[in-house]
Design a protein around this nucleic acid. Structure first.
Length: 416
RNA sequence: GUGGGCGUAGCCGAGCGGUUUAAGGCGCCAGGUUGUGGCCCUGGAGAACGAGGGUUCGAAUCCCUCCGCUCACCCCA
């Protein structure tokens, strides 16, 4: 028997109301903030991701779904959403549009890793990117959107962590300081961190191994090594967040897993949750990425949130989400003539915008009404010989258990 | 890649070497008389117990291998 591949899952009808709720909430926020939807391909030239995400990140080192297509081109299933949007920005000359360009996407994301709670090989992200402005007000806007999304979804007790990791001017110096700090304490580092020390020093900061953890608390902080511009930017951002009443806590160990981030980085997670995969969303500024991808120097900022994790949290918090597509009418019929009538009536009601299903069987009325009950339809319509003769139907309100005879041409009216 | 837990009908789940030709619940189907649902009652269909091998007179129950699921680590959404 076939099964969905490891780390993937079917989103079955009973789940769909959560997905629909999230999609609607997200897109209405995007509308409010003036963001427009963009869809990019599910797969891209593999090199796009290697260049943007960084060679020595986990994603590129071991998590990409990569293959050669039949033409021999290197292809990768999208492991994150930002790089493709930047590629599209450059490819379509969006620097000619009024800046910043505000975009959002909802897309499948693929990473080859061992699945566990809240982590999958194919998952879905909703993300926004604001490209073409360095103003910290834009960082605040993006963070505000993220926050507002969670608030509007009805999630409680979420916390925002914030950091600035500097820019291409000030970061090199910070990295040197950081590297020499860890080198001094090399003996107490975990094996992973020893290995990473030369390649991706920033990432040592969020190692959770107990021995490293203590060391990380004492480590030099990027916030203390920002150049004047970055420091000003960060200060302004914090002012804006205060203006918007967005509570945040500074986290000097927050660095994010992708190489392209500059300045602002942030993460949002339910308060008090521990463990590694609790973050429901995160993002930051990536001022050098578009230039790296062959565009003009273009500062930008964005964030993404994992839809599966949102669903998980909505359920955990017992958030009530609206039901999907309630059925209005179920038609039961008795006898061939009635069945023909039901067929026509079903079509008529559907054309009038009334959701309708008719029984497919010639079973007893009892059995058909049972189906009607399970279908969740608000009304049942019963057509038998009497009704056919008199050009009427029996209209039954399922919740009240009351019914009346309605002329067939008055039916659409009676249902309003 | 590493470590732990688990694998019995569509779903949940009892059984843990011998009246098991495998409970029970949900769901599904049919009936409880004539054209009426949701509650109740009755009946029915549906599993050779993840796969393969072994131990034994006898295995869903013990052992081995594999596969799968799951949780955790690494890391991320």
């Amino acid at each position: 028997m076939y099964q969905a591949p490891r780390g993937t899952s079917d989103i079955l009808p009973p789940e769909q109301k959560y997905w629909s709720y999230i999609r609607h909430t997200a897109s209405s926020i995007c509308q409010l903030y003036g963001y427009q939807r963009i869809d990019t391909p599910t797969f891209e030239d593999a090199r796009l991701f290697v260049r943007s995400i960084g060679e020595s990140t986990d994603i590129v080192e071991k998590e990409m779904y990569s293959f050669e297509d039949k033409g021999g081109d290197p292809i990768t299933l999208r492991p994150e959403g930002t790089a493709p949007v930047c590629r599209a920005y450059v490819e379509h000359g969006m620097h000619n549009l009024p800046q910043p360009v505000r975009l959002y996407y909802m897309a499948s994301i693929f990473r080859y890793e061992r699945p566990q709670a809240g982590r999958y090989r194919e998952h879905h992200q909703f993300g926004v990117e604001a490209l073409g402005a360095a103003d910290p007000a834009l960082d605040a806007e993006v963070i505000d959107m993220a926050w507002q999304l969670y608030v509007n979804l009805g999630l409680k007790g979420i916390a925002l962590s914030l950091n600035s990791i500097g820019c291409s001017n000030c970061r090199p110096r910070y990295l040197e300081v950081l590297k020499s700090y860890y080198t001094q304490h090399k003996e107490s580092l975990c094996p992973d961190c020893k290995r990473r020390l030369g390649k991706n020093t920033l990432r040592l900061l969020d190692c959770k191994t107990p021995s490293c953890f203590a060391l990380n608390e004492q480590a030099p902080r990027s916030m203390d090594y920002l150049c004047q511009e970055c420091a000003d930017h960060f200060n302004q951002l914090r002012n804006y967040l205060n203006l918007l009443n967005l509570p945040f806590s500074l986290s000097h160990r927050l660095v994010r897993g992708l190489d392209y981030y500059t300045r602002t980085v942030f993460e949002i997670a339910p308060e008090g949750e521990t463990g590694a995969q609790v973050a429901i969303g995160g993002g930051g500024r990536y001022d050098d990425l578009i230039e790296q991808l062959g565009g003009k120097p273009t500062p930008a900022v964005g964030f993404a949130t994992g839809i599966e994790r949102l669903v998980l949290n909505l359920k955990k918090q017992d958030v009530v989400v609206p039901a999907l597509f309630p059925l209005t009418v179920f038609i039961a019929h008795l006898g061939q003539e009635a069945r023909d009538e039901a067929m026509k009536l079903t079509s008529h009601l559907r054309k009038s915008g009334i959701s309708t299903i008719a029984s497919l069987s010639d079973k007893s009325l009892k059995a058909q009404l049972k189906q009607a009950n399970v279908s969740g339809a608000r009304y049942s319509i019963i057509i038998g010989e009497d009704e056919v003769k008199s050009r009427t139907v029996t209209l039954r309100n399922m919740a009240k258990g009351e019914q009346q005879t309605v002329p067939i041409d008055k039916l659409a009216e009676a249902l309003r």
